[in-house]
Design a protein around this nucleic acid. Structure first.
Length: 749
DNA sequence: TTAGGTTTTG
């Protein structure tokens, strides 16, 4: 006869001739045919096979008395072992009859009864275990041990308690609309319910009910076991459990379906989940993500680098750590740098965070996004991600298994992410940048800029400079608290050294308009071909009457190779001129009058050399005829822009960086202007607007000199030469400062 | 034993 699982007290099913035996009277040699033993399963071992292939199952039963030898080993053999192994659980009450009593070989070691019970089916044994009945939550009574079903209304993912165990707090509710908060402890994380979401359905076996603060409370006791199910209506009913052996009936499937339906309309399941792309500052939300890097920051905080395939719409902070402290695939971290966010976890979460495996999928509950801006750059704000200490509101971290539906969806999405789309702007990863800054910063005497002259000067404190007579030159050591403009391309201006005027760099659209205007007038054939240039005219297809004339400047009456040739172009579009500038050394856009070719208005560049457009000062230029160029053509022409400008009577404008640096050395702070053609950044101002590579390089340098989100104390030191000078502003005299003879240190570049 | 739901202030 197989194991019987019955409702209510198992002994009521027993034949009346059977007598209960006490462990203290149990001994070998006595007839056990009319005896039965009843106890609670306090331990069950995994089902195994003996050497001869017989199934074997061992449990420990505890008698409900307090004598010293109140526990006994019970061994099951054959099919009975198999049956018992499937239904018997720790904490169950069990009745065994038809057993043999034999000497326990392990009595000396396990301190249990000196005999053990052997039960095999052929001996007519009929062990019985109680069938599970489930108590509705409105029928709970203190001091009982019950089995429950419920939908999860609230939960704290397992966290390391202050004692020896993991703890998880779970509030469940059922159709009676009564809720029960359960405090579950276990030294084994896997033994706690695997709840991932509000709305999951749980089944608890053998949970203790007691009263606390005038409310019922559930708490783990001996033999507690749980199953967790996805709460989605219609989802497959697959229990999440660490136990390989558990009972599960069709009737229970029905219970789950009913609870799912009930919860769907009675429980607000829509938790605050969000993708990184939907992050809002000042928000608590649950993030499902993959861990790509982790690092210890200090004793009370730990860094997790995660991504979810989407891009956070705000700049997010980067937490500074030593490269050697960062665990994770550096290449991957670099590749994902624009999608990764840094999360700092604090206090009680640190220990769990440390144990997380890189590459694992996580759900981080009640993650806090906080908007902040740096002390030194108040106009630049960024988002910080914090998992604060404590477990309020279910704050915590849970590892999701690979087969979790949300993880599957996340993986599929991550696989489809096109990384090139998100890798704009920065050419260097923030990790690399952070490493450079932290390494160099750790050297107290390291300066991120160096002097190109005046090394003999001693450092002067900024407060001394502020109180000194003007003009003077100084050597200083200070930190770059902030700078303007923050958009670096805005720092490039055009400067006339003759009238000292500064102007914005015209953009391509202005030039395009001028070119279109010129193209409206057809080239005059009378001015084509001369002693010093050869002309060619092309018709444009499908563009009405537009003609393009190109005048190739000759040397010694001969044409030169295109890469050495200056051409004058009339009627071309911006696109065509750009194309020609890739092939020919120099281009001068022209138009034709009745008598001659002439330069365009000085709002347009007078000369294009590769990607560099040269402009002239409208105020200081005194334009000469285009014929003046012939004098240059006679010589061996090198087509230097300054020479071309000179013969054409143009005062050339120079590209410069103009920036305002707020410097602070602790004694005082002052604004100093940086006025630089190329020397300071080692980047020509004339090329930066047309080179994304140079823009990225400049951006990186500024990030190193003035890392966003860094406190003044942690900013790197700069060494500079500055000069003070007076500026007249109407009647007022103003003192200004300018950086000179200084450049960014080579290590930084 | 631990925690016993109800957001840190980094």
């Amino acid at each position: 006869m197989p194991v019987q699982v019955i409702d209510g007290a198992p002994e009521t099913l027993l034949p009346s001739h059977l007598q209960k035996v006490d462990l203290k009277y149990l001994q070998m040699g006595c007839d056990q045919a009319n005896k039965y033993f009843q106890g609670t399963v306090i331990l069950s071992y995994p089902l195994t096979k003996l050497g001869n292939g017989t199934e074997f199952f061992k449990i420990v039963l505890q008698e409900n008395s307090c004598s010293k030898t109140s526990t006994i080993n019970v061994l099951f053999f054959g099919r009975l072992a198999d049956d018992c192994g499937k239904v018997v659980h720790q904490g169950d009450t069990m009745v065994v009859a038809g057993f043999n009593v034999a000497k326990s070989p392990s009595a000396n070691e396990d301190d249990r009864h000196c005999c053990h019970l052997e039960v095999a089916e052929d001996a007519g044994s009929t062990p019985v275990a109680p069938k599970y009945t489930y108590t509705p939550l409105n029928h709970l009574q203190g001091g009982t041990i019950v089995n429950l079903y419920g939908a999860v209304k609230f939960f704290k993912p397992p966290y390391i308690s202050k004692g020896t165990d993991y703890c998880s707090v779970v509030t469940i509710v059922d159709q009676s609309n009564v809720k029960l908060t359960c405090t579950l402890f276990n030294g084994n994380l896997d033994a706690l319910p695997k709840i991932y979401k509000i709305g999951d359905i749980v089944r608890f076996h053998r949970i203790k009910i007691r009263e606390y603060n005038e409310q019922m409370q559930g708490i783990t006791g001996i033999g507690f076991a749980s199953l967790t199910f996805d709460g989605t209506v219609g989802a497959p009913i697959v229990p999440r459990t660490s136990s390989k052996l558990y009972s599960f009936t069709e009737e229970e499937q029905k219970t789950i379906e009913e609870l799912r339906m009930w919860a769907a309309s009675n429980l607000s399941v829509c938790g605050p989940t969000a993708k990184l792309s939907g992050v809002q500052p000042m928000l608590f939300f649950d993030l499902t993500c993959q861990l790509v890097g982790k690092a210890e920051v200090d004793g009370s905080s730990f860094l997790l680098k995660v991504w979810d395939g989407t891009k956070c719409p705000y700049p997010s902070w980067k937490v500074l750590v030593e490269e050697s402290d960062l665990e994770g695939d550096k290449v991957l971290i670099h590749r994902l740098r624009n999608l990764i966010v840094d999360i700092l976890v604090y206090d009680n979460h640190v220990k769990l965070a440390k144990s997380l495996k890189v590459e694992s999928f996580l759900r981080i509950y009640s993650l806090h996004t906080k908007q902040a801006s740096a002390e030194n750059q108040p106009d630049v704000s960024y988002v910080e991600f914090h998992l604060h200490g404590g477990t309020c509101y279910g704050r915590g971290i849970r590892v999701l298994p690979e087969n979790n539906p949300d993880v599957k969806e996340l993986k599929a999405f991550m696989d489809s992410v096109n990384l090139t789309e998100s890798q704009n702007v920065e050419s260097m990863s923030s990790v690399e940048l952070d490493v450079i800054v932290s390494l160099l910063n750790s050297l107290y005497f390291y300066c991120f800029t160096v002097l190109t002259d005046h090394q003999h000067l001693d450092d002067t404190a900024l407060n001394t400079i502020l109180n000194s007579a003007v003009p003077q030159q100084y050597r200083i050591r200070a930190k770059l608290r902030t700078f303007k403009p923050q958009k670096l391309y805005q720092s490039v201006k055009l400067y006339c050294s003759k009238c000292n005027s500064l102007q914005e760099v015209p953009d391509g659209d202005d030039f395009d308009l001028i070119l279109r205007d010129c193209a409206a007038t057809a080239p005059n054939p009378e001015v084509h071909n001369s002693l010093w240039y050869h002309s060619a005219v092309w018709d444009t297809e499908n563009q009405g009457q537009r003609k393009i004339a190109v005048h190739f400047v000759k040397h010694d009456e001969l044409l030169q190779e295109p890469e050495d040739t200056l051409i004058m172009v009339q009627g071309g579009t911006l696109k065509e001129i750009r194309k020609l500038s890739r092939r020919f050394k120099c281009i001068i856009p022209v138009r034709s009058t009745k008598e001659d070719l002439e330069l365009l208005d000085l709002s347009a560049p007078f000369l294009l050399q590769g990607k560099i457009w040269h402009y002239g000062c409208k105020q200081c230029s005194n334009q000469k005829t285009i014929q003046s160029l012939s004098s240059l053509a006679e010589e061996e022409p090198s087509w230097e822009p300054t020479e071309i400008a000179r013969v054409l009577g143009i005062e050339p404008l120079q590209y410069v960086f103009v920036m305002k640096f707020t410097l602070d050395d602790g004694t005082g702070a002052l604004d100093a202007y940086l006025f630089d053609y190329e020397k300071f950044f080692q980047i020509p101002a004339s090329e930066v607007l047309t080179s994304s590579l140079l823009q990225e390089k400049m951006e990186m340098i500024m990030k190193i000199l003035c890392p966003p989100g860094t406190k003044l104390d942690d900013l790197p030191w700069l060494e500079c030469c500055i000069r003070s000078y007076n500026v007249k502003d109407g009647m007022e005299q103003q003192v200004c400062y300018q950086i000179f003879d200084t450049m960014v240190a080579e290590d930084v570049i």
